[in-house]
């Protein structure tokens, strides 16, 4: 089994096909979308492939070390950062193909007009612990 991160971006991914912002949807469309997301996670739980899912606040700050005895330097939040992560789901699946298939399903979450959003999700494998048997 390999763990994959399915990463959703607020910004930075190529534009979705159905890119109407959520607050412009009808209340029913919002409802259907949320239901889809809950069902999707529930289904992966039942297949034993769900690990974690979290949403992130859009506000963030960059921080770096500024030398001994000095407070860290902070910068941001940047309104125009190129890339902005919205949240993730971590799945634990047998194959890369399975990870892609699930990301594809998730990208089909319904949006405006009840049509799939076709949003771009980033799929990244976790670096795992070194195996015990190497030869």
């Amino acid at each position: 089994m390999t763990k994959y991160l399915l990463l959703k971006h607020y910004r930075g991914a190529p534009e979705a096909v159905n890119a109407v912002p959520m607050d412009q949807w009808t209340p029913e469309e919002v409802e259907d979308h949320l239901q889809f997301m809950a069902d999707f996670a529930g289904r992966l739980e039942s297949t034993g492939e769900y690990v974690d899912g979290q949403a992130l606040s859009p506000e963030g700050t960059f921080v770096r070390y500024d030398g001994e005895g000095r407070p860290p330097v902070t910068d941001g939040p940047f309104a125009e950062t190129k890339d902005l992560i919205a949240g993730w789901m971590v799945i634990d699946v047998d194959t890369y193909e399975r990870a892609l298939a699930l990301a594809g399903e998730l990208s089909a979450a319904p949006g405006a007009g009840g049509k799939p959003i076709h949003e771009w999700l980033e799929v990244r494998p976790f670096l795992s612990a070194p195996p015990t048997v190497t030869e």
Partner: peptide, 10 residues
Amino acid sequence: LTRQAARISQ
């Protein structure tokens, strides 16, 4: 809050 926004926009 998203539902509220959607309701009023509608």
